[in-house]
Design a protein around this nucleic acid. Structure first.
Lengths: 231, 231
DNA sequence: TTTTTTATGATTGTCATACAAACTAGCAAA
DNA sequence: TTTGCTAGTTTGTATGACAATCATAAAAAA
């Protein structure tokens, strides 16, 4: 044991951070659907905290583009236009490809083991056709990749984009044929990672995000058409 | 005059937004240098607002990575490690190249005119060797490019990265030879824009960011070495 | 009945206080 | 020199207050 191991790192969780996490979760799981109006007082009651904390949490979520302030100052869960969603995927394609590339280049065994572990769990979930679990793990996988890049900037920027579309992931995976396709792309990527072929891994990741994007976009357009039909 | 022109858009500026702007400015101009500790009470006095507003402003700046909370909860202006700075430029290279590409593709005359206007002003500032003005305008130019992409996502993401390194811009431009080099790259880009050659414009932009990155990194490393020397 | 006014709440932005917890720094005691 | 104590700082959180704006329902006027 080294002297550094004595250092106490954990500070008591802040109420506002907890609030941010809870709200982020509520949004990404679809409990608060896009467009839902969020009223301060109600959030205070629901979370059991004061306005101070709720307001500070809102400022953070606002900066993360997860909530949007309307013309009357009222806050609602951001609704992602199909165009914005598509653009987020376009950026993700660039950033996550770069992340994988670095990850392979860094050749950190711990990180790579973590990825292969996650990948095996995902394969299990796929065989069981357990979409909710798969969705969660796909999120963890993406995060692990960003973290594995070893760059705080890549991690933060990528994660911010990821969080904005996380509520779409489940829908994306239920698009017909997407599961098989996604599996194939992941296979290709992990294969490249195992071979320590950074370029191939990056390209596989890019392809994966690209395909996901197409699935999402067609899904969102279908929804939009359905709405138009109804109105 | 059309009926839309009647719409009242401006809502009275919020105190906290004003505070955020002021603080952002103070950071990017170097008034608050990286590492400076920001004490709530002092900010309240300096800005003439209540703790509520300062705290909410801090949450936003925190989410933008312009300030960092330390282990004792105290907030200071983020110090960018050379690695982080380099990574920001790496992402900027990808994003701003994409932005220019779209900008050219959109072929929006108003936007392109704005750019050429800015470019001419920048040339003037270069001839006068007026670095502070040039720095400001380079920032405006970058923002105009991001805005001109027509994508809110590209704009927001790019701007966030831009703001994090804006305090480095002036230093970057005073690197020997950087002014001439930057001028050449901008020339090439604007030329490609005029020719409506999206690919060439994107490549020129990428080259520009890449060269800027190298200037910055060598600058930061020099600073770091000087510090090591001193200690 | 339809339109206009008025009154009543709701919601948000801002401020002022208050207090606890954690930390800092300096002084006193051993 | 070390230890222990004390007072002051800084931050996180809660609460209450109030103005401005907006929404809605009720009342008055046409």
């Amino acid at each position: 044991m080294k002297i550094e191991d004595l250092r106490i790192v954990e500070n008591p969780t802040l109420v506002r951070d907890h609030a941010v996490e809870k709200l982020r979760d509520a949004i990404s799981t679809g409990f608060y659907k896009p467009g839902t109006r969020l009223v301060e007082r109600e959030l205070c009651e629901a979370l059991g905290v004061s306005r101070t904390s709720v307001r500070e949490a809102m400022r953070q979520l606002q900066a993360e583009n997860l909530v949007t302030v309307g013309p009357r100052r009222n806050i609602s869960v951001t609704v992602l236009s199909p165009e914005d969603a598509e653009d987020i995927y376009v950026l993700r394609e660039m950033i996550e490809a770069k992340a994988v590339h670095r990850l392979v280049r860094r050749n950190d065994q711990a990180v790579i083991s973590e990825l292969t572990g996650l990948w095996k769990d995902m394969q299990k979930a796929i065989r069981k056709n357990d979409l909710p679990t798969l969705s969660k793990m796909a999120g963890a996988f993406n995060e692990a990749v960003l973290r594995g890049s070893g760059s705080k900037v890549i991690h933060d920027t990528g994660l911010q984009l990821l969080k904005r579309v996380s509520y779409l992931r489940l829908a994306s995976m239920s698009e017909p044929g997407r599961l098989e396709g996604g599996m194939e792309e992941w296979d290709a990527m992990m294969d490249a990672v195992e071979r320590r072929d950074a370029d191939a891994a990056a390209e596989a990741m890019a392809r994966h995000v690209r395909e996901s994007r197409q699935a999402i976009v067609s899904r969102l357009n279908a929804e939009r058409d359905a709405e138009r039909e109804a109105s």
